[in-house]
Amino acid sequence: MNLFRLAGDVSHLLAIIILLLKIWRTRSCAGISGKSQILFALVFTTRYLDLLTTFISFYNTTMKVIYIGCSYATVWMIYAKFKATYDSNHDTFRMEFLVIPIAALSLLVNHDFAPLEILWTFSIYLESVAILPQLFMVSKTGEAETITSHYLFALGLYRALYLMNWIWRFFAEGFFDLIAIVAGLVQTILYCDFFYLYITKVLKGKKLSLPA
């Protein structure tokens, strides 16, 4: 565990909690893509199946359980508890366009052709693009609430910090995992445009809105 990874995990946790609190306190999931949240729930479920087979550490187990629990709670709030506020007309990204090709890719490019390993690989590939329905929704409506922008920033920052962690681990331990690194790079690049808008607009007190 190095500082980059710890900061990455904290940033990830913060993102998840910001989103949960935003929905809970405003009693509304307006502007939030339920499809991205379903994809994240799928990411955590397929990645953390090793909870059942391997114990790594108390920290590891706790964080995995929190991530899974929070992601299902978020999906439940969007599709059940606060369903009336869910903006489904703007959440039109087709999930199968991501899930099917990624399932095929994880069968073809993986470290080991074993069920848990393929599911882990699937989760890594899927996570890299799971935010697309949310970004698509923001670009479709042309704006995002400030709190939603904070969520997206924390979520993007998490993978950028993991990239730093992998650079650190490569030099400190000679460890690298090409699948995670390439997918992490793709994931971080997808957020770059958003990072630019966040820094130039949201941090200056303006709402995130896209030029018409």
Binding site: D50, T54, H111, E117, F175, A180
Partner: peptide, 10 residues
């Protein structure tokens, strides 16, 4: 080995 060490990350 690489396959097992990577699962220590979240």
């Amino acid at each position: 080995d690489a396959i097992h060490t990577k699962h220590d990350e979240l």
